[in-house]
Amino acid sequence: MTDYHEEQNAELEALESIFCEELQFLSREPVAEFSITLKSEHYDEEDASKGAIVALRFSFTPTYPDEPPEMTVDNLDGLIVGEDEESSLMEYLEGQAQDNLGMVMIFTLASAALEWLNQRCDQKINHREEEEKRKEQEREEEEHRRFEGTRVTVETFMKWKLAFDEEILRSKKVKKEDTSSKKLTGRELFIQDKTMNESDLKFLEEGGEGVKVDESLFENLDELDLDDLEESEDA
């Protein structure tokens, strides 16, 4: 018959020698309850952006290690925070506990948690560095475009030409509207109205029969010196 209590005490002694500063007992009887604080590889208390820290709480059950210990995340801080991260860590540890049933497993679980912590931190740091590189590349490309100017392609030229043609049409339309709304002088009206050029002729053609000419007014035309008249007009 397995003496679970004796097996658990033996494991606790080993854990105290391994995690001298990281292990803290919350109670020993009737069951052992303790926490182990784990820090990622590059954790810095003064700069939380470089790593993460987690405190795991364990409680032995009466038949541990034939059943998993009770586990909770007391604290997860630094580069990795949030309920989603805590849930992900707990799910990972529960899987590890099931794989190690029948064997003392606290050291194994703590080592698995530390590995998970380091991997998560590396992912966060890599993502942050990639994002910084992307932003820096965008800044460089923007600076290059500002220096070089915009390259002309078929697409950009056609887009420009369409806008240019539309602007020309608008200008012509506005000019036409301004011209049509302008009040014309009598001379401009006369020039524009072609019918006025033929008004006298039409008058004579249509009403010429009713027009009487006094021929006596023209009896002395032969006596006029037309040459002198032309010279005076030329002068």
Rank of each mutant, 00 (worst) to 15 (best):
I53L: 14
I53Q: 08
V54Q: 03
A55R: 11
A55D: 05
L56G: 00
L56R: 02
F58L: 06
F58A: 00
S59M: 11
S59T: 09
T61F: 05
T63S: 14
T63L: 12
T63N: 12
Y64C: 05
Y64D: 00
P65I: 07
P65E: 01
D66G: 07
E67N: 07
P68Y: 05
P69E: 08
E70I: 04
M71D: 03
T72R: 00
V73F: 02
V73A: 02
V73M: 01
V73E: 00
D74Q: 08
N75I: 05
N75V: 03
N75H: 11
D77R: 10
D77K: 03
G78H: 04
V81Q: 09
G82R: 07
E83T: 07
D84T: 03
D84G: 09
E86Y: 01
S87V: 12
S87L: 15
S88P: 10
L89Y: 01
M90N: 02
M90W: 00
E91D: 09
E91V: 12
Y92L: 08
Y92V: 00
L93C: 01
E94T: 01
G95P: 00
Q96Y: 06
A97V: 04
A97Q: 07
D99G: 14
D99W: 13
D99M: 15
L101I: 13
L101H: 03
L101P: 06
G102P: 11
G102E: 13
M103Y: 04
